[in-house]
């Protein structure tokens, strides 16, 4: 699924990477635990997380994760946005709970990581 459709499905606001919404997403991983995220090895991954601090972006940088949705109406800080921009990460904010966001994407047929 294209990021554009992810944004529509989640009624998400694109905070950074507006021009990269043609990117394809093949799997979703949802976690507030960066320890967990660091063990994932998937291409074209979308990360759904309610953990909102600079380490969310750092972890994604190290894990080559290029697409992030912040759930539960959490707001990205300017530092997070700058680091995301530097790493060509598409960052979105969504007001849905983790459960709802996951459910909507699952319904659209995006695969889990495992």
């Amino acid at each position: 699924m294209k990021l554009q459709e992810v944004a529509l499905t989640l009624k998400a606001r694109v905070i950074c990477g507006q021009t990269r919404l043609e990117r394809d997403v093949e799997a979703v991983f949802a976690s507030d635990l960066m320890s967990d995220v660091l063990t994932i090895d998937s291409e074209k991954l979308l990360l759904l997380t309610g953990l909102v601090n600079i380490q969310t972006i750092r972890t994604s940088e190290m894990s080559d994760i290029k697409n992030i949705v912040l759930v539960r109406n959490k707001k990205a800080s300017p530092e997070m946005i700058a680091l995301a921009e530097e790493n060509r990460i598409v960052l979105m904010e969504c007001s849905y709970s983790m459960y709802k966001a996951c459910g909507l994407l699952f319904e659209k047929g995006i695969n889990p990581v495992y």
Binding site: L33, M34, S35, D36, L38, L51, N53
Partner: peptide, 15 residues
């Protein structure tokens, strides 16, 4: 609170 502390790091390094 920062998203760490699951006790998985050293094992992940090993992997």
């Amino acid at each position: 609170e920062m998203g760490f502390g699951a006790g998985m790091g050293l094992q992940n390094i090993k992997n």
